[in-house]
């Protein structure tokens, strides 16, 4: 009986201690981590997509509530008008989740640019989706399509050779992006107006 109590007490105290330690560290690093994520993951992609905007898209952003999910859109101002938003969606790649940032001109529903943000694809194969700009630039200046599919699946997207699964992941993410964008467009436009 004594041993039982000792076991329970030791485990409880140890758990409480580790919980407290982790909470403290998490609280003190939270802000830094958010900043790092913005800087390293989404930042470079946003800056490349919204290249030439007159504002800092990392600072100007808006949040739209999509059935309980907060979605974050980064605003790009061109010709003195806030007419472009960039946001991130996810697809399934070969090695795991694949983050895709897409920039859309809200006036013409045109894609300004697409970039892969996070991925765990094979270096030299699927990872080219991020580094090989020929692949992502095929979407530039195109009107946002209903859905995206790679050519082997009967769609319109030129797949990266040897990385069909990755290309499929990017296509899924883009299809999702289209759906989300169309659903939230009224709210986005409203907020863009007040953002000016």
């Amino acid at each position: 009986m004594r041993e039982m109590i000792k076991m329970v007490v030791v485990l409880t105290v140890l758990s409480a201690f580790s919980g407290g330690l982790l909470a403290a560290i998490r609280n003190s690093t939270q802000e830094k981590i958010d900043y790092q994520k913005l800087k390293f993951v989404q930042g470079p992609a946003i800056r490349e997509i919204l290249d030439g905007s007159s504002n800092d898209p990392l600072v100007d952003r808006l949040e739209v509530n999509d059935n309980g999910v907060e979605r974050r859109f980064f605003i790009g101002k061109f010709d003195g008008e806030a007419n472009t938003v960039a946001f991130e969606t996810f697809g399934k790649g070969f090695g795991g989740d694949l983050g895709v940032m897409i920039g859309i001109n809200t006036k013409e529903d045109k894609i300004l640019g697409v970039r892969v943000t996070t991925h765990t694809e094979t270096p030299g194969v699927g990872a080219r989706a991020k580094t090989d700009l020929d692949f992502v630039s095929q979407f530039n200046d195109q009107t946002l399509a209903e859905s995206y599919k790679v050519k082997p699946d009967g769609g319109q997207v030129d797949a990266l050779s040897g990385a069909t699964v990755t290309s499929r992941g990017v296509s899924t993410a883009l299809s999702d992006a289209g759906t989300i964008y169309r659903r939230l467009k009224p709210q986005i436009e409203e907020k863009l107006k007040s953002a000016k």
Binding site: E3, V10, L14, S18, L21, R26, I33, Q36, K37, K39
Partner: peptide, 27 residues
């Protein structure tokens, strides 16, 4: 009797510490 559980608890705690720190400083 519960040493393995305690070890794992201790190890897991420090692993998460490493994870958080590496996210914050060497992203």
């Amino acid at each position: 009797k519960v040493r393995i559980a305690c070890f794992i608890l201790v190890i897991a705690t420090f692993v998460i510490v490493v994870e958080l720190l590496s996210q914050a400083f060497t992203y």
